[in-house]
């Protein structure tokens, strides 16, 4: 049989290079989906529960090992006010930063940006505002520049950050950096509460170095990770025969 020659004027599309036919493409995609397992909602909920459980347990255990709650010279009222206030703020920032806001594409970028900007400002502001009512607690502690708080903040945030980023991996096609930064801010807000309970120092430069700086670093690190981990990327493994153009006549 002589192969049918297609004249130049009868090519199937005017401006589009040819690919495979629709049925073949459909069959190939469906076949590939059956060969590649993906978790159902129930399976994912189980995984998510395990990851979140570990992400919560790890910082709590580390916090206890590190010394747990230390009231020190602080009045109990100060401890309660700073801890409760920062816990409420952190809860709000975690809900905004981790939740998707009733959309498959996550929250709008304006929400995420607001959350990222407000997290350090509000938490720091709350701590300073409450501590300022106890002037003796605002004094400098010569032996506490903030290095230990800095280390503790980063240490406690590692597991939640890794867990939350893992849960959101490959899920954001719109603004992955911002989403990741919001996740980092949420993880940092959670650890801020624990560090608040541990650290009695209210000296502002100490707070900036030991509490705010690690939070900013977490946000920056998350934003860097976001473009690699949270973004939707082209998967080179799926480049098959489909991607090769059919020979032209």
């Amino acid at each position: 049989m002589v192969p049918q020659q297609i004249s130049k004027s009868k090519r199937p599309t005017a401006d589009v290079r040819s690919g495979v036919d629709e049925a073949q493409l459909r069959a190939q995609v469906i076949d590939r989906s059956t060969r590649e397992h993906s978790p159902t909602r129930r399976e994912l909920a189980l995984r998510r529960g395990m990851v979140l459980g570990m992400a919560l347990a790890a910082p709590l255990l580390s916090f206890i090992v590190w010394g747990g709650l230390r009231v020190g010279p602080r009045p109990v009222g100060l401890v309660l006010q700073t801890a409760l206030g920062s816990a409420v703020l952190a809860a709000v920032f975690i809900i905004v930063g981790v939740g998707r806001g009733g959309s498959m594409l996550g929250r709008p970028s304006s929400w995420l940006l607001t959350q990222v900007l407000l997290t350090p400002v509000c938490l720091f502001g709350w701590r300073v505002l409450i501590t300022a009512r106890y002037p003796e607690m605002m004094l400098e502690w010569a032996d506490r520049p903030g290095i230990r708080c800095f280390t503790l903040s980063l240490l406690l945030a590692c597991a939640p950050l890794a867990g939350l980023i893992w849960l959101r991996r490959g899920s954001d096609p719109l603004h992955p950096r911002l989403t990741a930064a919001a996740v980092g801010a949420a993880a940092g807000a959670g650890t801020w509460v624990l560090v608040d309970l541990w650290c009695p120092v209210g000296y502002v430069p100490h707070l900036l170095l030991g509490h705010v700086l690690p939070l900013l670093l977490l946000i920056a690190l998350s934003a860097l990770l976001g473009s690699r981990v949270i973004a939707v990327h082209r998967d080179r493994r799926t480049v098959t025969e489909l991607s090769r153009p059919r020979p032209r006549f």
Binding site: V16, R17, S18, G19, L25, Q28, V29, R32, R234, S243
Partner: peptide, 9 residues
């Protein structure tokens, strides 16, 4: 078309 097929997949 070939690239579109691949991206659709």
């Amino acid at each position: 078309r070939a690239v579109a097929d691949d991206l659709l997949q």
